[in-house]
């Protein structure tokens, strides 16, 4: 019997440096009355360090195990982390396209591999569960005072032929729900530029430069916040914002919210419940919610 609920794959980041993403996502889902079943005994997807690229074994087997588990009980699995989503889709793509890979994977798993569960990212799932019209109805223009930028980064849209989610050059799928919050969502020129990925530990110099550029453009675009669906992007842009300013000799301030936090705010969930306090760069909530009774 397959459940109508979503199988939920939080991934490693959402249990440590990005717990506010996990908490806010669960809050939003709960408010929408949807059931989430956390994937049983899930493992790390391998993220970027696990070699993938076309034919690498580990890049299929690690996320493949999660797909396999989810397939036993659920039609769809949701992965809020853009990296986890990316790797699940990659594994699914390889497994669906190559019988030899399927057979070898089944051999390792000692069972016929299940890989057909639908893999969704947070934007896809929320778009499915709440229409922009419905969100607009609920939010009543709650965030009308602010300008926010949709920041997609890399893993949510690239490679487009495998993910099939949105245009890699001009993604727009976050926008309708973001606008439904009442906020203004101007064009953000750096919405697809990379934040520096996992270079934080080993080559901070590269990362800080890349992330600095994104923050700088967000500021010059006149944004009140960036919105992302990737814990790694969030880590680089928010957690490291002090490092960025220090390294580049600037004093930029740009709050970076998770997609779920923004949607939660629009739905009337309190900033505390959505763990906005966890952000390093705090948005001025009084101004944001000015005029909301």
């Amino acid at each position: 019997m397959v459940s109508t609920a979503y199988s939920y794959y939080p991934g490693c980041s959402l249990t440590s440096s990005a717990t506010e993403y996990d908490i806010s996502f669960r809050k939003v889902v709960e408010a929408l009355g949807i059931q989430l079943d956390e994937l049983e005994d899930w493992n790390c997807c391998g993220a970027s360090p696990a070699p993938h690229h076309k034919a690498e074994t580990l890049g299929v087997l690690l996320p493949g195990r999660n797909l396999h588990i989810a397939g036993a009980s659920h039609d769809a699995i949701v992965a809020p982390c853009a990296g986890c989503y990316n790797r699940l889709k990659y594994a699914q793509y390889k497994l669906a396209g190559d019988q030899d890979i399927r057979e070898q994977t089944s051999e390792v798993f000692q069972a016929e591999v299940r890989y057909q569960t639908e893999v969704l990212n947070i934007v896809q799932m929320l778009n499915r569960e709440i229409t922009p019209e419905a969100l607009r109805e609920r939010s009543q223009g709650r965030l009308a005072n602010i300008r926010i930028g949709a920041y997609y980064g890399c893993l949510l849209t690239r490679p487009a032929d495998i993910l099939g989610f949105d245009s890699p050059r001009d993604p727009r799928k976050m926008r309708p729900l973001m606008e439904a919050t009442g906020a203004e969502v101007p064009h953000f020129p750096f919405k697809t530029e990379c934040c520096g990925s996992y270079m934080g530990l080993a080559r901070k110099d590269i990362l800080l430069k890349a992330s600095h550029r994104i923050i700088e453009v967000a500021v010059s675009t006149g944004l009140d916040a960036l919105v992302t669906a990737c814990p790694l992007c969030h880590q680089n842009l928010d957690l490291r914002q002090e490092q960025i300013n220090k390294a580049m000799g600037t004093s930029l301030r740009m709050p970076v919210l998770y997609f779920s936090q923004l949607i939660g705010l629009a739905m009337g969930i309190s900033p505390e419940e959505l763990e906005l306090d966890a952000l390093v760069v705090q948005p001025d909530m009084d101004r944001w919610l000015k005029g909301v009774a």
Binding site: S48, H53, G153, C154, R158, P159, A160, C194, S197
Partner: peptide
């Protein structure tokens, strides 16, 4: 770090 911006453009 494989951000694939180059590939996409």
């Amino acid at each position: 770090y494989d951000c694939m911006t180059c590939s996409s453009r």
